[in-house]
């Protein structure tokens, strides 16, 4: 019973923070709502027996990716942008299609899932760090190496994209005659 209660509390926070993220006028608030969302989804992962992924989620998403977002928002001063609706009726269409998608997915899930059987309890060692590590470095070695190459390329790409073309101005003062 406590499990159900926890799920519903988490679910309410997850949906609320997701809505808050989309609806906030201020991009900083959006980012903070998303951090909350990621943190609570990590709690759901812990509940689902995936502690390693939960910690990775907090470290990578909440701790690194969202900090990067906050950084960029603060540096660009892009907190508030005027929001006008360029295409007439886009908002209505999006809401209608979104509701339709939810209804379709609900029907599909209910039809497919059959009776509401609770999730089975996993073995004690399921998804322990050792378990995850062994799987990662045996069956998933190639994807792991590919991902590391992607990260390296992304790092170089980010540096090249943000580098300014002008040569750096000297701060020693010798050349600053202006």
């Amino acid at each position: 019973m406590a499990n159900y209660l926890m799920f519903f509390v988490f679910a309410v926070v997850v949906v609320g923070s997701a809505l808050g993220m989309v609806l906030s006028r201020n991009a900083i608030y959006s980012a903070l709502f998303l951090v909350l969302n990621f943190a609570v989804v990590a709690l759901l992962y812990v509940q689902l027996g995936a502690p390693f992924i939960a910690m990775a989620q907090v470290t990578v998403y909440a701790g690194a990716i969202m900090v990067l977002f906050l950084f960029v928002i603060m540096l660009l001063g892009a907190e508030q942008l005027s929001e006008e609706e360029p295409l007439p009726g886009q908002r209505v269409a999006a809401l209608l299609l979104g509701t339709g998608f939810i209804i379709a997915a609900t029907i599909l899930i209910v039809v497919q899932a059959g009776p509401a059987t609770p999730l089975p309890a996993p073995e004690a060692t399921f998804a322990s760090p050792m378990d995850v590590g062994t799987t990662l470095f045996t069956r998933y070695t190639l994807p792991f190496e590919v991902v590391s190459a992607i990260l390296l390329v992304a790092m170089i790409g980010a540096i090249v994209l943000t580098r300014s073309d002008r040569p750096r101005q000297s701060i020693t003062g010798a050349e600053r005659k202006d």
Partner: peptide
């Protein structure tokens, strides 16, 4: 879980 791990890694690259 492995899939999620890779999604996270690729998301980090994509965000950068």
């Amino acid at each position: 879980q492995m899939f999620v791990f890779f999604v996270m890694a690729v998301a980090a690259a994509e965000v950068a």
